[in-house]
Amino acid sequence: MAKTSGVPFQGTKEQEVALREKLAELKKVQGGLMPALQEAQAIYGYLPKEVQIIVAEELGVSLEEVYGVVSFYAQFSIVPKGKYKIGVCLGTACYVKGSGDLLAEVEKQLGIKAGGITPDGKWSIEATRCIGCCGLAPVMTINEDVYGRIGPKEVAGILAKYN
């Protein structure tokens, strides 16, 4: 079954111009596909088919090659992210301090699973790899904000801050 985000593509002309400009440079770079996808994701926030086609065309590779790379790496996403991106660290240090329960609570509060986005596009949850704040374990992030040394009980209060 074909994989799509199910969200209509709303890329702008400006975004496309910006991407094509970057790609023109990266075309000359050895191994430019990864940086190209990183630039593309920085511009669009995610990598829908429309964007991957531009990358494939500009770099002269097949769409499947692009998708094969995109689907390999966890940080590339074909699904848009929420306005508030929640990350719950499942690194070892956080895990042994109960971040699994933390994630379960966030999922429960928002009614979506890790990797998903709420229907209103407001929240998305990701179970992340170690983000290196092991001293603060267990750690949850919302966009740039980091919440450390928290338990499931604090989750509701933290989410409420973004309402």
Binding site: V61, S62, E64, E65, Y67, G68, S71, F72
Partner: peptide, 8 residues
């Protein structure tokens, strides 16, 4: 190259 390995 219409087919390739996807996911991991």
């Amino acid at each position: 190259a219409v087919i390739g390995a996807n996911e991991r």
